[in-house]
Design a protein around this nucleic acid. Structure first.
Lengths: 229, 229
DNA sequence: TATCATGAAATTGGATCCAATCAACAATCG
DNA sequence: CGATTGTTGATTGGATCCAATTTCATGATA
């Protein structure tokens, strides 16, 4: 197989979803977010349908949802293309997260439970052990979300998680290029400690610098791989 | 016609969209946001298709997109229902906007152009004249967006505009119940003036209090219409 | 009487078929 | 020789048909 979509072939097994549309949508999103489907990949409806063993219809509905999540570009009569990643898009994503996550953290801390703290601590430990960079992104995302768990406002949380997931496309990038110290586990621990004692001010401040340095790391990465003319 | 979807019948004329899916999606979204389709309305695929003179397929694709925008709830094998509005949902929406809009305004002000300022000023004047509460929501949204125009970060702006549009469902509510002074034109003018002289700090501060009072107004409105037990 | 089967109608999910559109290439004309 | 215009193949958009699921009414039974 020489098609770039061949990356999808092994994934049809795991959980039975309610509908074929949900299944295709989840599989495509996971493949886009973890980099198996790189930016620019054309998603031919017939081909995707054949790979998943369904007809084109659930594929079309799944593509519509991914379009609304800004994971693919949908051009009428032309087809769907995985959204390209770029320095500008990374900065865009970080601007959104720099708005949403401090808000979520600030709302959540006053009512955080010991369970939430424990889960966050476990996830930090898991990240120290995890060798697979693929899973590291997911663990990082779950660590952040566990600190936001008590924010209330389900829509805010859903948006935050979605943007955090989008960031996985870039986290994986820098991890592969610069090693795992980019995860800034020290900041993770400091943030957790501040959250555990209910110090929202400090925790939010740490989160802001944490995200700012991550954003700069990614910007630098793009700068050195594609130097400005 | 006694169906609640009868509110859609007059709207099929204006702009020719590229595809039927786009047309249905735009028409449904507009109808939901401006209140013609109230929360809880069931969207029967066959019925919607008949009203717009298309088959069920473009309706299904449009519903998928609206689902991803959190405007409808999609339950497998049960159908689509317009998302209900509530005090909790309003607070959720305002929390998201309180995160996104100050960020957008702060990024935009340093590079705002005289054209942007002029457009914003015109929109304030338009709001003073507009008698139709329906159009007021749109003018308010365009005023806010004109101040964010130079923020860069197209995804951030798209998200912001989407959430601002969702807020229309509530703005219309309070306008009808409490009159147009709730628009706080004074704050609009003060914010514009601060933006015009490049004072981001002041403009963002005004925006924050502007949104906080709007959020409180809506919370009060829900409280008095549905007193807590 | 309440509860649990049961079955029919309504509704959605999925597959297949046809039409519309676009891209590439060939042929014609200047 | 270059530009433009048909023409053809590939791909998506839309319609129709069938299958699967849910719901609701109906009735049997404890």
């Amino acid at each position: 197989m020489k098609s770039p979509l061949a990356a999808l072939t092994g994934l049809d097994s795991p959980p039975r979803h309610r509908t074929a549309t949900e299944f295709v949508e989840a599989a495509l999103r996971a493949a886009i977010l973890d980099g198996r489907l790189p930016g620019g990949t054309a998603l031919r409806q017939e081909e995707v349908a054949h790979i998943f063993g369904v007809s084109r219809m659930p594929v079309r509905e799944a593509l519509r949802q991914l379009e609304a999540q800004a994971l693919i570009d949908f051009l009428p009569h032309k087809g769907a293309v995985v959204t390209a990643i770029s320095a500008e898009d990374a900065a865009d994503n970080y601007a959104i997260r720099m708005a949403l996550e401090p808000m979520a953290l600030g709302l959540s801390i006053p009512t955080l439970t010991p369970d939430d703290i424990d889960r966050a601590a476990d996830l930090i430990a898991d990240m120290d052990r995890e060798p697979d960079p693929g899973r590291l992104g997911e663990l990082n995302r779950r660590f952040h979300m566990s600190l936001y768990a008590q924010a209330g406002h389900p829509r805010l949380l859903a948006l935050t998680e979605q943007q955090l997931a989008s960031a996985d496309r870039y986290i994986r990038f820098t991890l592969a290029a610069r090693g795992r110290d980019q995860l800034s586990q020290g900041e993770h621990r400091a943030m957790l400690e501040a959250a555990a004692r209910g110090d929202a001010e400090t925790a939010v401040a740490i989160l802001r610098t944490h995200m700012a340095t991550a954003a700069r790391t990614i910007a630098d990465f793009f700068r050195e791989r594609e130097p400005r003319p």
